[in-house]
Design a protein around this nucleic acid. Structure first.
Lengths: 245, 245
DNA sequence: CGAGCAGTTGATTTTTATCAAGTAGCGTGG
DNA sequence: CCACGCTACTTGATAAAAATCAACTGCTCG
């Protein structure tokens, strides 16, 4: 399992890279580190794919034979318990990488939230390329390390933060996950439902709703629509992130 | 941040490797993938270090200039909130690797639980070696991917499992983390305190205690001492892991 | 226009945290 | 060797946070 997300440092690069290719392989953010020749080989391996909302890119337990580079839209990655409880482990956006696993099978499922496009790579072909392109491997490794740091932050959130703190953290972190989308500062787009937010934050839909309502009533945020809001008081939201009630 | 843990597949290798060196670099589980020449270079870079219980190997926010290979003992890795709430993100044991971070600073703290020995590597020297030793880099990457999968399991645990389920999962998973220690099947050593277990599972010490007591009263486990127990009914414990009350 | 979701809000229950005593093990010093 | 005191742990009573149950609202799309 591996979801590689955007590095703030490379956002500018990524935007320009992604603009100059039809296939979308270049939207993958490690491309800045690649020689043109390697980039061309990567492009040659990419197969375009489109997914409707709810459609699965992969399912937990399936043979892990494909990897994806998300080129537009958004994806939920999750694990299930036998009784149906779901933990969403991450949301992926354009530029994110999905599907590297250490074992033979996927350890998670991934589904499109919105209409989503992606480049699919056959695992074997991709591995061959990685094997003789150290720059690519190094970049992937760097992203994996970033992912681990993000995962640790999420462990802190799930293990030790209150509902209000989780929501505040979520609203502040979400825009950073989707840096290829140009949005005015303080503007947050929520492509996912309340249920998905709840399953990401380890809460119920009602608790998410109440926490958002409270942020709205106290003037910290303003709801522009169900799926769009503005952070009116970023510093207060940041304070709420770590318990300064 | 990166904690590389043991791969079941390589346990046998690791035990023999670790037995044949004084420095302990070879206890690091990727060694199986290395040429003798590279292994010697790795050994040459290692500095032995010993840590008393409670002593810090690294602190969140410090410049990340060292990396460690744990050779004996155990370590807690954690993050703190400003008000002191702690989330332990992992326990490390002999063979585990610690300290690879993507940024310039550590994103977590690490302290010895028991008397612990480790090999310290200067980050710059280590990186130079990794750079011209693709086998080492590949092995590290593989381990990072494993760590990400483990982190996703922990997200599921913290976000969606009950206290009882968390304890059951913990007791079943713990022995696998310390595979270099030969223990009879069903025997679990708890080098950490109840407080540390609580901070790892997102619970309080009282809840941990009650959950263990319940497992004891129902005959699923037997407490041999405070820090040692026997799993009497592994299949019932496994069922408790995912909600089959 | 109406059906059906998705979301909000309110009442109540449940789980877990918090507060408050105990108890057990262990090292120290008498 | 035992008493002491410390710390870690357990157990019990109560409180708080979040889940659950239950309407209800409002939006979207046939």
């Amino acid at each position: 399992m591996l979801e590689l997300r955007s590095l703030p440092a490379t956002c500018a690069t990524r935007r320009s890279e992604s603009a100059c290719t039809g296939c979308g392989a270049r939207a993958f953010s490690v491309c800045g580190a690649l020689e043109p020749a390697d980039l061309a080989r990567l492009d040659a391996l990419a197969h375009k794919a489109a997914f409707a909302p709810g459609e699965a890119l992969m399912r937990e337990g399936e043979t892990a034979d494909a990897m994806f580079n998300i080129t537009s839209g958004s994806v939920r990655v999750y694990k299930l318990l036998p009784d149906g409880r779901r933990q969403i482990t991450g949301f992926l956006f354009a530029g994110d990488f999905l599907g590297l696993v250490s074992g033979a099978r996927y350890g998670f499922s991934a589904e499109a939230i919105e209409p989503t496009t992606a480049c699919r790579f056959r695992k074997t072909e991709y591995q061959a390329l990685v094997r003789d392109c150290p720059a690519l491997e190094r970049a992937l490794f760097e992203r994996a390390t970033h992912e681990l740091a993000a995962a640790q932050n999420q462990l802190l959130l799930l293990g030790r933060k209150t509902a209000q703190e989780r929501i505040a953290s979520f609203l502040l972190d979400l825009p950073a996950h989707d840096p290829m989308r140009e949005t005015p500062a303080g503007h947050v787009r929520l492509p996912m439902t309340r249920t998905e937010i709840a399953d990401y934050l380890g809460l119920t839909i009602e608790t998410v709703s109440r926490a958002l309502t409270k942020l709205k009533t106290t003037g910290v945020i303003r709801l522009l629509s169900l799926n769009e809001l503005r952070i009116e008081q970023p510093e207060r939201l940041r304070a709420l992130t770590e318990g300064d009630a």
